[in-house]
Write a protein that binds this DNA or RNA. Structure first.
Lengths: 300, 300
DNA sequence: ATAATAGTGTCTTTCAGACAGTATAGT
DNA sequence: ACTATACTGTCTGAAAGACACTATTAT
C-alpha cells in the first residue's frame, strides 16, 4: 500500500514533479583557514629558531576588495558535498592530501559580499610546515603565508541585578615581510535573566577582505580551545619532534609562555620516545619523540 | 584615483554588471534543535518528579519521509540573515523571544534531501520548560516534545604502529507517549601518522526523517560538552530553582548520576541564594537559588 | 669555559571523586 | 516514627602551577 499525500501523490510522483526553482537562492562558498607553525631564521649556531603561527591568504585580483587579502576558498557546486569542496580547495592551495580539516562556522549575513548573497562555510585545516615548503599552490605570488597573532586588548563587564554585559576587543595582526594587515573584533555577550546572546563584529580592519578577519579570529579561538583537550597539535608537527618544539607550537598558538617541567608532565602520555636525538646544536642534544597512538579516549 | 580591474572596470562598474545567476545553486535551510528539561508526573506527595531531556519534533505531512518525524526548520530567504531565519523558526515553533540559540554545524551531503540539493545549517536552542507549556506552536498536534536519550553502545579501537582506528556506535532514542523513534549512529576517527579524519554516519534509523538523527546526536554531544564549562544550563532552568533540580538537569543531559556534595561544590560559585524555600514537600524544605551574574570570565 | 638548551625533582595549591554523616519537613 | 529529601564535613588522590636544580653539547 503506497502512502499518498494530500494531493494524492505517491512519493515517486511527488519527487518526479517537485519543482525546486521557485525561489531565488543564495550562493554557497567555503572559506579555508589553513594554519601551520613554522620556524623563523636561525640566529646563531646555538640559538633555536623562533616559531610562529602562520595562515595562508590570497591577494584579490578583482573587485570587490581588490588588492586586499582574503582567505582561500571558492564556490560549492550543485553536485558537490560541502566537505569535498573544502578538500578540493585545500588540495588546490597547498597541494597536499590527507591533512587535518574541520568545519568551523557558517557565515550568513545578508551583505557580507557586495556582489551577491553568499553564505559561506568556514573550515580550519592544520598543516605540518615541513610538508609544505614545496609550493604554496600555483597562483604563486598571490598566495602568501602570514604570521598571525591575536590578543585581547580590552575587556569590560557591566553588572546589573539580573545579569551582565561583557565586551571584549580583540586585535588580530597578520604580517608577511613588509605587508601588515590588522583588524579589531568586538565580541559581545549579554545575559539578562534567562536571556543570553553572543555576537561578534568587525570594528576596524586594514587590508583584510570581506568578513574574513572575523573568521580568522573565530578559527584562532577554536584552535586555542581544541589544543587544550585534543591531539590536534600533532597535525602541525613533523613526524619526529623535540618536546621543546612541541612546547613552542603550544606557545605560539596560545600566545603565552608555558613552564617546561609542567608542560612535559602534561603531554608526556601523548608522545613516545623514538630513541633518536638531535645533533649539531651548540648545547645538549634533545630526544626526538613521535605521537603516541595508544593515547585516546573518545571520538569527538 | 579609482582602482580598475583587468577588464578596466571600477568597483562600481564591476558590481553593477555582476551576474550572479550563471550556476545552479543549492537551497539553504535551517534546522532547529530545541531542547528543554521538564518534569515528569509526581508519583507521591513525598517523591520529587523525575526530569527528562526533551526535544521538539514535527511530523511530516508530505513526501518525502511522510509520516516520520523531523526537526523543525525551513528555508532561508534570499534577503535574510541565516541567524535571523533560525530565530524566526524558533518564534514560529515555540512562540518565545529571547531564548538561547547557537549554531551547531552545516550539513552538506549531496543526497541528504531527495527533493533537491539542500544545504542545512543546524542550530541548538535551550528553553526553560516553565515558559513553555503555553503551546507548542500553532501546527499543534504535528509538533511534539520527545524525551531523548543517547548512549554509547559499542566502542572499538584498533591500534597500528603509526596510529589507530576508533569506532563508536551510539544509540539515540526518542519517545513521546506511544511513539518511539530511534537511530544508531556510527562515529569514526582514523589516525595514521599525521593524517587524521573523523566521520559520522547513520547505521540504522526508525521514524526520524532525513539525516536528522545524526544532527540530534551532534546536538546532544555539543550540549553535554558545553554544560561542563559554560553557564548554558541556566537557559533550561526557571529563574528560581533548587540545587537538586539543577543537578537533575545536569544528570539528564549527561546521562549519568552525580554525587550531591561534589556537584554542589562545583556549581556553588555560579549560583546565589534567594533566601526563599520550597514548601509542601514531605521532607526538609530546600533553598531556592538563582543564577549568579558575578560569575564569568570570557565571552566565548 | 661558556652559552644555550635539555631534562628532573619536589613543594604547594586546587579540584574531583567517594562516602559518611546530620537536619528537617509532612503525614 | 518514618520516609524522602536537604545539606555538610572530610579523606583521598590526581593534576596544575611555581621554581630550583642538574646535565650536556659545539664552539
Amino acid at each position: 500500500m503506497e502512502l499518498k499525500n494530500k494531493d494524492g501523490l505517491t512519493e515517486k510522483e511527488f519527487l518526479d514533479t517537485y519543482n525546486d526553482s521557485m525561489y531565488k537562492k543564495p550562493s554557497f562558498t567555503v572559506d579555508m583557514l589553513i594554519f601551520t607553525v613554522s620556524d623563523g631564521p636561525r640566529q646563531s649556531y646555538r640559538k633555536l629558531p623562533q616559531k610562529s603561527l602562520k595562515i595562508l591568504m590570497v591577494k584579490r585580483g578583482n573587485h570587490p576588495y581588490m588588492g586586499q587579502w582574503a582567505l582561500p576558498g571558492g564556490f560549492v557546486s550543485i553536485d558537490e558535498n560541502i566537505n569535498d569542496a573544502a578538500y578540493r580547495e585545500l588540495k588546490e592551495e597547498v597541494n597536499i592530501d590527507n591533512i587535518y580539516m574541520e568545519q568551523l562556522y557558517t557565515w550568513g549575513a545578508v551583505d557580507r559580499d557586495p556582489r551577491a548573497r553568499v553564505i559561506s562555510c568556514s573550515y580550519m585545516s592544520l598543516v605540518d610546515s615541513s610538508m609544505l615548503n614545496v609550493k604554496a599552490g600555483d597562483d604563486a605570488d598571490d598566495a602568501k603565508w602570514f604570521t598571525v597573532s591575536s590578543s585581547l586588548i580590552e575587556q569590560k563587564k557591566e553588572m546589573s541585578p539580573k545579569g551582565y554585559k561583557l565586551r571584549e576587543l580583540v586585535k588580530i595582526e597578520l604580517s608577511c615581510g613588509d605587508i601588515c594587515l590588522s583588524a579589531i573584533i568586538k565580541k559581545k555577550k549579554n545575559v539578562e535573566g534567562r536571556v543570553r546572546n553572543t555576537d561578534s563584529e568587525i570594528v576596524d580592519v586594514h587590508g583584510i577582505a570581506f568578513d574574513h578577519s572575523m573568521i580568522i579570529q573565530y578559527g584562532i579561538d577554536r584552535l586555542r580551545n581544541k589544543i587544550e583537550y585534543t591531539d590536534i597539535v600533532f597535525n602541525l608537527m613533523p613526524s619526529e619532534f623535540t618536546l621543546t618544539e612541541l612546547q613552542q607550537a603550544y606557545e605560539v598558538i596560545l600566545g603565552r609562555e608555558l613552564l617546561k617541567a609542567n608542560f612535559r608532565r602534561k603531554i608526556m602520555h601523548m608522545v613516545k620516545e623514538t630513541g633518536k636525538f638531535t645533533a649539531d646544536a651548540g648545547h645538549r642534544p634533545s630526544k626526538l619523540y613521535t605521537f603516541n597512538p595508544d593515547w585516546v579516549e573518545r571520538v569527538f
